[in-house]
Amino acid sequence: MAHEIVERNKGTDDLILIGIRTGGVHLVHRLANKIKEIEKVSVPIGELDITLYRDDLMLKKEQPVLKKTVIAFDISDKKIILVDDVLYTGRTIRAALDGLMDLGRPRMIQVAVLIDRGHRELPIRAEYVGKNLPTTSDEVIKVLLEEEGEEDRVVIYPPSPASQEGQRVKT
């Protein structure tokens, strides 16, 4: 994926990687490291919390806890790669787009995800996909990472009663 990103953007000029909390944070650091290996350049990294831009806040029983957005530079006129672990309905990316627009006017935004599990509910697509993984909408997908003390792997859980409740408001 790192190679694809560099190739498509013809280098790393004005490139910024922004990971969406929480799934995209570790991945964005990995991607940045890979790009550094390839191009010998450090691409700036940011972390974006989209909680305030979610479209489902009023549907949840409790207010989700806010996490910090850390983007220490101006994003205007930059090429942004939004990174997340799983692309599903597209609502998270939509919220991330709104959040980025409030921070500046990027030249371009592209999306990179590790897993695309289908079932889009909005016209959102990812330019860079690690793996396409067809699922049913009542299955649960979890990406587990070394950085969190797990073995790197993607797990698909069969539908469970609890997960069905969560499904409706999943991103």
Partner: peptide, 10 residues
Amino acid sequence: LYLLMGGKTE
């Protein structure tokens, strides 16, 4: 305001 107004009131 965020913490008191968000979410469904049961």
